[in-house]
Design a protein around this nucleic acid. Sequence first.
DNA 1: ACAATATGTCAATAATTGCTCACATATAGG
DNA 2: CCTATATGTGAGCAATTATTGACATATTGT
Lengths: 120, 120
Amino acid sequence: MTTSESDAIFSALADPTRRAILSLIGEHEELPAGEIAAHFDSLGRTAVSSHLRILRLAGLVAERRDGRFRHYSVTPTPADAVVAFLTSVYQNSLEQLASAVQDASATGDTPLNRADERSA
Amino acid sequence: MTTSESDAIFSALADPTRRAILSLIGEHEELPAGEIAAHFDSLGRTAVSSHLRILRLAGLVAERRDGRFRHYSVTPTPADAVVAFLTSVYQNSLEQLASAVQDASATGDTPLNRADERSA
DNA sequence: ACAATATGTCAATAATTGCTCACATATAGG
DNA sequence: CCTATATGTGAGCAATTATTGACATATTGT
């Protein structure tokens, strides 16, 4: 896990539009670029395309080409750098972190889906 | 958990210097601003001060005033927004996420401490 | 072949961000 | 009081980033 990899991931996650894109893709198995762009009224298609490029270079999404379409999906285990950083900083509250994740896993509750994803 | 809160947290974490500051503070109970700044040769004191302000506004660090000094510490459970986002996106790999956190918790291993924290 | 569709890329521009230098504030100690 | 110490703040500048519009590429259907 190199620094530049972490940089790319954290930089990618810094933009609320990109987090919204990631959430949107995560709600589906795959999503073509056009449908993703269609979800953002206030944004041009090319802007979304640029964001997808950044997410892809950060390894957060994968691209599958199918004819004219490019289908994007969330990379299965991409957040390793984020988790690694959190665990290194928040050693003191790791148990809370683990239980928070497990709770979410058990209940299927996804707190940020309620409001945060609609930020762009 | 409002959008602006998440924005502040993810934006704060986007900068490698700020992640390094956070890691550094996390290695101690508290650290005065001057000692934090002293760890960054390539950076002026005021730049570190600005970073500390951003981390504080994001709720990632706390400030305790003691005479002329301002001691900074890592906020106990600040990563909620990050965890919430990760759980919302990576529902499919939540068990892996939880076990990764638990492994780190059990072993005390902190992957990013090995290289990533020294990125600034 | 041609036109329409799906999408990426490039150049230019506007907005944001990080850094430094000078200055302000506050506290401690003679 | 006056000086040194610890730290924050604001203006200005350089670097980065997000967005757009025009153009390029690839694919499908007629």
